[in-house]
Computed example of a mutant assay.
Amino acid sequence: MIFRKVIEIRKPVRLYDRGDRFALWGSCFSTRLRDYLMGELYDVSDSPYGIMYNPLSIAQGMERLLSGRAPREEELILRDGRWHSMMHHGAFSHSSREVALQGMRLAFERSRAALTETDLLILTLGTAWVYEREGEVVNNCHKLPAEDFTRRRLSVDEIVSDWSRLIPSLIEQAPGIRILLTVSPIPHYRDGAHESRLSKAILMLSAERLTELFPDRVSYFPSYEIMQDELRDYRFYDRDMAHPSDQAAEYIIERFRECYLREESGPTLQRWARVRKQLSHRPLTDSRESLRAYYDSLLSTLLEIRAELPRDYLDREIQRIQEILSHL
Rank of each mutant, 00 (worst) to 15 (best):
Y189D: 03
D240W: 13
E230K: 11
I226T: 10
S206H: 04
A201H: 02
I167S: 04
T182N: 02
I179K: 01
P185K: 03
L210R: 07
F221C: 08
A174C: 12
D238K: 14
A201F: 00
D240N: 14
L198Y: 00
L203H: 04
L180T: 11
A201C: 05
E230G: 09
D191C: 05
Y234S: 10
Y237M: 08
I179W: 03
S164N: 11
P175R: 14
L210C: 12
E172G: 00
L170I: 04
R165W: 06
D216N: 14
E158R: 04
P168I: 10
E208Q: 13
F214D: 07
I179H: 01
I171N: 00
M241F: 15
R209D: 05
H194T: 07
L180A: 09
R217T: 15
L231W: 10
F221I: 11
R178Q: 15
S184M: 09
L170D: 05
P168R: 10
A207G: 15
R239C: 01
E230S: 07
E212S: 10
M227Y: 01
I226H: 08
Q228I: 09
L181S: 08
L180D: 04
D216T: 13
H188M: 03
P222D: 12
D157R: 15
I167H: 07
V218P: 06
L181Y: 05
R178W: 05
H194G: 03
S196G: 04
K200Q: 01
M241Q: 13
S199R: 06
A201R: 04
D238W: 14
Y224N: 05
E225H: 10
I186V: 15
D216W: 09
R190V: 06
Y237D: 04
V160K: 02
Y237V: 02
I186P: 00
I202M: 01
E172P: 03
R239N: 07
T182Y: 08
D229I: 07
D191Q: 01
V183P: 01
M227H: 05
E225I: 06
P215M: 14
R217F: 14
I177W: 07
E225L: 08
R209A: 15
V218A: 08
M204E: 15
S184P: 04
S199Y: 06
G192Q: 07
A207Q: 05
R232G: 11
I226N: 03
S161P: 00
K200L: 02
Q173S: 13
D238V: 02
H194Q: 11
D240M: 11
L166N: 04
H194M: 10
V183D: 02
S219Q: 12
M227A: 08
R178C: 08
S199W: 00
R235E: 11
M204R: 15
R190L: 09
T211A: 11
L166P: 05
Y224A: 03
P215E: 09
E212N: 12
R197H: 04
D233I: 13
L180H: 11
I171M: 15
P187L: 01
G192A: 06
M227S: 05
F214A: 12
L210N: 08
I159W: 00
F214W: 07
L166C: 09
Q173D: 05
I167L: 14
D233Q: 13
E195W: 03
I202V: 12
P222Y: 11
A207E: 04
L181M: 14
V183T: 04
Y234A: 05
V160L: 03
S169V: 06
D229Y: 14
L181G: 07
